[in-house]
Design a protein around this nucleic acid. Structure first.
Lengths: 195, 195
DNA sequence: CTCATAAGATACTAATTAGTATGTTTTCAA
DNA sequence: TTGAAAACATACTAATTAGTATCTTATGAG
């Protein structure tokens, strides 16, 4: 019962890699299997079909990463503007999990799968929702301790910030890292206007 | 030689519709054909393969629309902030060409095809590039006639604006039209900070 | 140890895919 | 009017797809 957990994880991780590059629909199960030492029998033992694997990908890999990289940095924040900027800047700097060319796995999945599959839609909506809420709460706390202007609407601002991130991951696919830099500079201007 | 031009256009338009909803890769040629009164012979008479059709889709449909809806409104602009805001607001209001659930056809194609196919990448890069340039020039003209602050970097701002639009189309797929409203309000705040 | 079940391997299937080969019809210039 | 090319139709193919049926092997509780 030990090894099997590992093979399941291996399948998920390899799938994650391939789907990140090629997209969910055009990454075939055979693609995944032939890229690693696992057979179809193992795959369909662990997942009843491709969709279940795709959803497991979201809950078992994407969600925990989201918590770690996008929620935690905000929860213990004294200065919302600094924290939020740093969170986004760190995301865009992270070349271990991301490649400009391929954008952001979560954003990609939203783009591709959200309109096509209600289960994907639900799972991804939860992720986006949690992130947006975390930003909103962070800004709200900022209003309380005077770091954020009283006329600022935290929910609106959070939606705007999340949108901006998703967008720069998209445009980055076309124009490369320079857009990241431009975006970050203007993003800082925007954030400062929230004081 | 008259009718054939129309069938070619019909194929492109129907393809555009289906690809907008399902994505390029998972819209099969058979899907397209069975959704209209055209046979495989006609399809492959007009396009040597699926890729050529996809690229024609960009140059013959997407590009002209981009010119009309995204470039023209800016070229004759006296007040950049007003024009740019109106352009984006009108885009997000347009329910004839767009559906929140399915986002923006161009953004979708970028997300899906840009990393996968160099020809798609090039075509889409041109579109994004032209739009960004148009916004940049509009802001530059604004600097000259005093509508835009002298310390503003038009190229940076343009990249930021385009990113924001792409992003809200993505997040809109998840959270629906309310994000459009939030986004527009904060976008206006940002634009006003450019004076 | 041992055997029931978990975990994985192998070989298939039916459907779908892009694309082709080859046919028929339509158009329009001479 | 006519005939050559343009425009389209039909019937195929080979590859790929998700998924299944049926095996074999590994594991760990008793």
């Amino acid at each position: 019962m030990r090894k099997s957990v590992q093979t399941r994880l291996n399948i998920l991780q390899k799938s994650f890699e391939l789907i990140y590059v090629k997209g969910y629909q055009s990454t075939s199960i055979d693609d995944i299997l032939s890229s690693m030492e696992v057979t179809k029998g193992a795959f369909f033992y662990h997942f009843k079909n491709k969709e279940e694997m795709g959803l497991a990908l979201i809950t078992d890999l994407l969600y925990p990463r989201m918590k770690h990289f996008l929620i935690e940095p905000l929860s213990s924040s004294a200065d919302p503007i600094k924290s939020i900027y740093q969170m986004i800047a760190n995301l865009l700097k992270d070349t271990e999990h991301f490649d400009v060319k391929y954008g952001c796995p979560a954003v990609n999945l939203i783009e591709e799968m959200s309109p096509l599959n209600t289960a994907f839609h639900k799972h991804l909506k939860d992720i986006v929702g949690e992130w947006t809420d975390a930003i909103e709460k962070c800004l709200l706390k900022g209003k309380e301790n005077g770091k954020i202007g009283l006329m600022i609407n935290p929910a609106e601002a959070a939606a705007y910030i999340v949108s901006g991130y998703a967008g720069v991951r998209n445009i980055g696919k076309m124009l490369g890292t320079p857009v990241y830099q431009s975006y970050l500079k203007q993003f800082k201007l925007y954030l400062n206007s929230l004081t």
